[in-house]
Amino acid sequence: MDLFLQNIVNALQWGSFYALIALGYSMVYSILMLFNFAHGDIFMVGAYIGFGIATGLLALAAMAGLPVPGWLVLVLTIIISMFLTSFVGIFIERVGYRPLREAPRASAAITGLMIGIILETGNLALLGARRLSFPSLIDTVTFQIGSVYVTNKKIFIVAVSLSLMFGLHLFIQKTKWGMAMRAMSYDFQAVPLMGVSINKLAPLTFAIGSGLAAAAGILYGLAYPVLDPYMGILLGWKAFVAAILGGRGSILGAALAGFLLGFIEIFAAWIFPSTFRDLIAYSIILLILTFRPHGFFGQAHSTQLRL
C-alpha cells in the first residue's frame, strides 16, 4: 500500500513531463493537421536554454555578490526560458513548416524529423558531446507523509505543470485567440473566412507549445539533472504517443494521456522487472488503441473537407 502511494507520487511527476510535451504536439496538430516531430528536440533545446539561463543568473548573482535565493533563480529560469524557447518554435514554423503548408502531409512530417536532427546535431556541434549537469537550484527537502516520501522538487514539478495546464486551458477557453484555435481544430479551412490570420495563429501555437516544452525541459533537469543532445528523442516519441492516445488534437486528452502514460510506465516498472517497463507499458497502450483508435477524446469527425 505504501509503495503503491509512493508510486502514484512518482507517476505524477513522470507524467507531468509527458503531459507538458504532449500538449505541444496536440496543439500544433489541432490547428495545422501536422505532427511537429521536432517537438521532442524543442524540449531538449528548452532544457539547454534553461541550463544557460540558470548558469548565467547564478554567475551574475555571484559577480554582484548578491545572495539570490535558488528558488528565485529557478522561477526566473523557467519564465525566461519559456519565453526564449517560444521563439525557437516560431522560427521552426516560419522556416520549416510554413513553406510546406500546402504540401503533402508526409513532406511536412519529414521536415519535422529533419529539423529535429538539425537541432540535435547543431547542439552537438555547438556544445560538444559532453553531457551537462543541470545546476541544482534548490536543495532537496524530503517530507514524509504517512509512509510516503515526497520531495519539495516533486511537489514543485507537479504544481508548476498543473498550473501551466490550467493556464493553457483558460487561454483556450476564454481568449479570442484560444477561440480561434478551437475553431481551427474543427474546420481549419473556414477559419480565414472569419478574418483570422493563419500566419499569426500558427506561430502563436508553436510558441505556446514550445514554451510548455521548455518548462518541461527545465523541470526534467531539476529531477534528472543530466542534459545531452539526444534527451528529447525518446521522451518526445513517448509524449507523441500520449498525444495520440489522448485523441488527436484534444488538449485535455493530451494532458490526461500524458499522466496516464506516466502511471502505466511507473506501475509496469513496479510490478515487472524494470527492463520490461517500456515493453509492458507500450503493449498496454497498443491494446488501448486497438479498442479506441481515435484515442480518448479524439473525434472521428470528417469536417476537414476541402472548402
Partner: peptide, 24 residues
C-alpha cells in the same frame, strides 16, 4: 463569404461563432 455546406464551427457555441467572425 457564406461557404457551401455552411462550415460552422460545430464545437463552438452560437455566440462564439458570431464573435469569432469579429476577430480582426
Amino acid at each position: 463569404h457564406v461557404p457551401e455546406g455552411r462550415r460552422l464551427f460545430g464545437n463552438l457555441t452560437v455566440l462564439e461563432n458570431l464573435q469569432l467572425a469579429t476577430f480582426a
